[in-house]
Amino acid sequence: MSLEQGSKPEFDAYCAEVRGCQACLQSKNPLPHEPRPVFQIHPDATLLIAGQAPGNLVNLSGRPFTDPSGDRLRDWMGISSDIFYDASRVAIVPMGFCFPGYTPKGADKPPRKECALTWREQMLTYLPKIRTTLLIGGYAQKWHLEDGFKGRVTDTVENWRAYAPRHFVLPHPSWRNNAWLKRHSWFETDLLPELRRAVQSALA
Protein backbone atom coordinates (compact mmCIF):
# COMPACT_ATOMS: atom_id res chain seq x y z
CA MET A 1 0.00 0.00 0.00
CA SER A 2 1.39 3.38 -0.97
CA LEU A 3 1.00 6.56 1.01
CA GLU A 4 -1.52 7.67 -1.60
CA GLN A 5 -3.67 4.79 -0.37
CA GLY A 6 -2.69 5.08 3.29
CA SER A 7 -1.91 7.96 5.64
CA LYS A 8 0.98 10.03 6.95
CA PRO A 9 0.65 8.63 10.50
CA GLU A 10 0.91 5.16 9.00
CA PHE A 11 4.01 6.17 7.02
CA ASP A 12 5.63 7.80 10.07
CA ALA A 13 4.89 4.73 12.18
CA TYR A 14 6.41 2.47 9.53
CA CYS A 15 9.63 4.55 9.39
CA ALA A 16 9.86 4.52 13.19
CA GLU A 17 9.45 0.73 13.16
CA VAL A 18 12.30 0.33 10.66
CA ARG A 19 14.55 2.69 12.60
CA GLY A 20 13.95 0.58 15.70
CA CYS A 21 14.71 -2.71 13.95
CA GLN A 22 16.96 -5.12 15.81
CA ALA A 23 16.35 -8.25 13.73
CA CYS A 24 20.04 -8.84 13.08
CA LEU A 25 20.78 -9.03 16.80
CA GLN A 26 18.65 -12.17 16.98
CA SER A 27 20.61 -14.01 14.27
CA LYS A 28 23.42 -16.51 14.67
CA ASN A 29 25.74 -13.84 13.28
CA PRO A 30 24.74 -10.65 15.11
CA LEU A 31 26.01 -7.21 14.21
CA PRO A 32 29.26 -6.21 15.93
CA HIS A 33 27.57 -3.03 17.18
CA GLU A 34 24.16 -1.68 18.16
CA PRO A 35 21.86 -1.46 15.11
CA ARG A 36 21.44 2.00 13.60
CA PRO A 37 19.32 1.78 10.44
CA VAL A 38 20.17 4.56 7.97
CA PHE A 39 17.89 5.46 5.08
CA GLN A 40 16.14 8.48 3.57
CA ILE A 41 12.57 8.27 2.36
CA HIS A 42 9.61 10.50 1.53
CA PRO A 43 6.53 9.66 -0.57
CA ASP A 44 7.15 12.63 -2.90
CA ALA A 45 10.67 11.51 -3.90
CA THR A 46 11.15 11.02 -7.63
CA LEU A 47 14.71 9.64 -7.61
CA LEU A 48 15.79 6.50 -5.75
CA ILE A 49 19.33 5.52 -4.81
CA ALA A 50 19.57 1.80 -4.07
CA GLY A 51 22.98 1.19 -2.54
CA GLN A 52 24.59 -1.62 -0.57
CA ALA A 53 24.90 -0.76 3.14
CA PRO A 54 26.19 2.14 5.22
CA GLY A 55 29.90 2.31 5.95
CA ASN A 56 31.34 3.05 9.37
CA LEU A 57 31.36 6.85 8.85
CA VAL A 58 27.69 6.76 7.91
CA ASN A 59 26.97 4.58 10.92
CA LEU A 60 28.51 7.28 13.10
CA SER A 61 26.71 10.18 11.42
CA GLY A 62 23.34 8.49 10.95
CA ARG A 63 23.03 10.15 7.52
CA PRO A 64 23.49 8.36 4.15
CA PHE A 65 26.68 8.84 2.14
CA THR A 66 28.45 11.21 4.56
CA ASP A 67 31.81 9.97 3.35
CA PRO A 68 34.12 10.29 0.31
CA SER A 69 31.94 7.79 -1.58
CA GLY A 70 29.04 10.20 -1.17
CA ASP A 71 31.12 13.06 -2.54
CA ARG A 72 31.92 11.01 -5.64
CA LEU A 73 28.33 9.85 -6.05
CA ARG A 74 27.01 13.41 -5.92
CA ASP A 75 29.60 14.38 -8.52
CA TRP A 76 28.51 11.49 -10.74
CA MET A 77 24.90 12.66 -10.39
CA GLY A 78 25.74 16.33 -10.92
CA ILE A 79 23.74 17.55 -7.90
CA SER A 80 24.49 19.47 -4.71
CA SER A 81 24.31 18.15 -1.15
CA ASP A 82 21.21 20.27 -0.57
CA ILE A 83 19.33 18.44 -3.30
CA PHE A 84 20.84 15.06 -2.40
CA TYR A 85 19.63 15.32 1.20
CA ASP A 86 16.18 16.65 0.30
CA ALA A 87 14.13 13.56 1.13
CA SER A 88 11.13 14.92 -0.77
CA ARG A 89 13.22 14.66 -3.94
CA VAL A 90 15.80 11.89 -3.38
CA ALA A 91 15.12 8.61 -1.58
CA ILE A 92 18.07 6.53 -0.36
CA VAL A 93 17.21 2.92 0.43
CA PRO A 94 20.25 0.62 0.71
CA MET A 95 20.00 -3.16 0.60
CA GLY A 96 21.15 -3.23 4.22
CA PHE A 97 20.24 -0.42 6.60
CA CYS A 98 23.04 -0.93 9.15
CA PHE A 99 26.82 -0.95 8.86
CA PRO A 100 27.59 -4.69 8.62
CA GLY A 101 31.14 -4.52 10.04
CA TYR A 102 34.48 -5.35 8.48
CA THR A 103 35.95 -8.51 6.96
CA PRO A 104 39.33 -9.73 8.28
CA LYS A 105 40.93 -7.90 5.31
CA GLY A 106 39.35 -4.60 6.29
CA ALA A 107 36.65 -4.37 3.62
CA ASP A 108 33.00 -3.81 4.49
CA LYS A 109 31.01 -7.01 4.89
CA PRO A 110 28.05 -7.63 2.56
CA PRO A 111 24.67 -6.09 3.43
CA ARG A 112 22.71 -8.05 6.00
CA LYS A 113 20.08 -10.23 4.31
CA GLU A 114 17.55 -9.56 7.05
CA CYS A 115 16.97 -5.99 5.86
CA ALA A 116 15.75 -6.74 2.36
CA LEU A 117 13.78 -9.79 3.48
CA THR A 118 12.03 -7.89 6.25
CA TRP A 119 11.57 -4.37 4.93
CA ARG A 120 12.46 -3.70 1.31
CA GLU A 121 9.33 -4.55 -0.66
CA GLN A 122 7.05 -2.69 1.73
CA MET A 123 9.35 0.34 1.91
CA LEU A 124 9.33 0.71 -1.87
CA THR A 125 5.53 0.88 -1.86
CA TYR A 126 5.90 4.21 -0.02
CA LEU A 127 7.76 5.59 -3.06
CA PRO A 128 5.05 5.76 -5.75
CA LYS A 129 6.59 8.67 -7.70
CA ILE A 130 10.06 7.27 -8.47
CA ARG A 131 11.08 7.92 -12.09
CA THR A 132 14.69 6.76 -12.07
CA THR A 133 16.56 4.38 -9.76
CA LEU A 134 20.33 4.26 -9.34
CA LEU A 135 21.47 0.69 -8.63
CA ILE A 136 24.85 0.81 -6.91
CA GLY A 137 26.76 -2.47 -6.73
CA GLY A 138 25.86 -6.09 -7.31
CA TYR A 139 23.48 -6.63 -4.40
CA ALA A 140 21.12 -3.85 -5.49
CA GLN A 141 21.44 -4.83 -9.14
CA LYS A 142 20.59 -8.48 -8.46
CA TRP A 143 17.55 -7.59 -6.37
CA HIS A 144 16.07 -4.99 -8.70
CA LEU A 145 17.02 -6.41 -12.10
CA GLU A 146 16.52 -10.08 -11.24
CA ASP A 147 17.22 -12.00 -14.49
CA GLY A 148 18.53 -8.79 -16.06
CA PHE A 149 21.63 -8.92 -13.86
CA LYS A 150 24.54 -10.18 -15.95
CA GLY A 151 26.29 -12.12 -13.19
CA ARG A 152 29.00 -9.50 -12.57
CA VAL A 153 28.83 -5.79 -11.85
CA THR A 154 31.22 -5.00 -14.71
CA ASP A 155 29.14 -6.92 -17.27
CA THR A 156 25.95 -5.31 -15.98
CA VAL A 157 27.35 -1.78 -16.04
CA GLU A 158 28.74 -2.34 -19.54
CA ASN A 159 25.15 -3.14 -20.55
CA TRP A 160 23.82 0.05 -18.89
CA ARG A 161 21.91 1.28 -21.95
CA ALA A 162 19.56 -1.71 -21.73
CA TYR A 163 18.27 -0.51 -18.34
CA ALA A 164 18.33 3.29 -18.74
CA PRO A 165 16.63 5.62 -18.05
CA ARG A 166 14.44 3.68 -15.60
CA HIS A 167 17.52 2.20 -13.96
CA PHE A 168 21.14 3.31 -13.99
CA VAL A 169 23.56 0.56 -12.97
CA LEU A 170 26.71 1.83 -11.27
CA PRO A 171 29.80 0.47 -9.54
CA HIS A 172 30.24 1.55 -5.95
CA PRO A 173 31.75 5.07 -5.80
CA SER A 174 34.38 3.89 -3.31
CA TRP A 175 38.08 4.64 -3.73
CA ARG A 176 38.48 0.86 -3.99
CA ASN A 177 37.08 1.15 -7.53
CA ASN A 178 39.58 3.78 -8.73
CA ALA A 179 41.43 1.20 -10.81
CA TRP A 180 38.16 -0.04 -12.31
CA LEU A 181 37.22 3.50 -13.30
CA LYS A 182 40.60 4.02 -14.99
CA ARG A 183 40.22 0.80 -16.97
CA HIS A 184 36.71 1.68 -18.13
CA SER A 185 36.95 5.23 -19.43
CA TRP A 186 33.58 4.89 -21.19
CA PHE A 187 31.94 5.11 -17.76
CA GLU A 188 32.89 8.77 -17.49
CA THR A 189 32.58 9.70 -21.16
CA ASP A 190 29.40 7.81 -22.07
CA LEU A 191 27.43 6.77 -19.00
CA LEU A 192 27.85 9.77 -16.67
CA PRO A 193 26.47 12.40 -19.09
CA GLU A 194 23.34 10.27 -19.57
CA LEU A 195 23.09 9.67 -15.84
CA ARG A 196 23.18 13.41 -15.15
CA ARG A 197 20.51 14.07 -17.75
CA ALA A 198 18.29 11.38 -16.25
CA VAL A 199 18.81 12.72 -12.73
CA GLN A 200 17.82 16.23 -13.81
CA SER A 201 14.78 14.89 -15.62
CA ALA A 202 13.68 12.81 -12.63
CA LEU A 203 14.05 15.79 -10.29
CA ALA A 204 12.38 18.33 -12.59
Rank of each mutant, 00 (worst) to 15 (best):
Q22P: 00
Y14H: 12
P32L: 00
P35E: 00
Q5K: 11
Q22M: 14
R36E: 05
L31S: 06
F11G: 01
C24Q: 09
A16W: 00
K28I: 01
E34H: 13
H33D: 04
P35Q: 00
C24E: 11
C15F: 01
C15A: 07
P9Y: 04
V38P: 06
S27V: 03
Q26R: 13
P30N: 06
D12W: 01
Q5Y: 03
R36A: 12
Q40R: 10
C24W: 06
E17D: 10
S27A: 09
C15P: 01
L31R: 14
D12E: 15
R36V: 01
Q26P: 01
A13E: 15
G20L: 03
K8H: 11
Q22I: 15
K28G: 11
E34F: 00
F11W: 14
E10R: 07
D12G: 02
Q40P: 12
V18E: 03
C15W: 10
G6E: 05
G20Q: 11
D12K: 11
F39A: 08
E34V: 03
E10Y: 03
S7M: 06
A13Q: 15
L25A: 11
K28N: 13
Q22T: 15
L31Y: 12
F39K: 00
Q40N: 09
L25V: 10
H33M: 05
L25R: 15
L25M: 15
V38R: 03
Q40Y: 07
P9K: 02
E17W: 08
V38K: 03
A13H: 13
S27K: 09
Y14C: 06
E17L: 14
Q22W: 09
Q5E: 13
C15M: 13
F39S: 04
G20A: 13
V38S: 04
R36K: 15
L25I: 08
Q26W: 05
C21F: 08
G20R: 13
E34S: 09
K8T: 10
E17A: 13
Q22L: 07
K8P: 14
Q5V: 13
A16F: 03
A16M: 07
G6H: 04
H33S: 05
P35M: 04
H33I: 04
L25K: 14
L31K: 14
Q40A: 08
R19H: 12
R19K: 15
P37R: 00
G6D: 06
G20H: 08
P35S: 03
E17R: 15
A16Q: 11
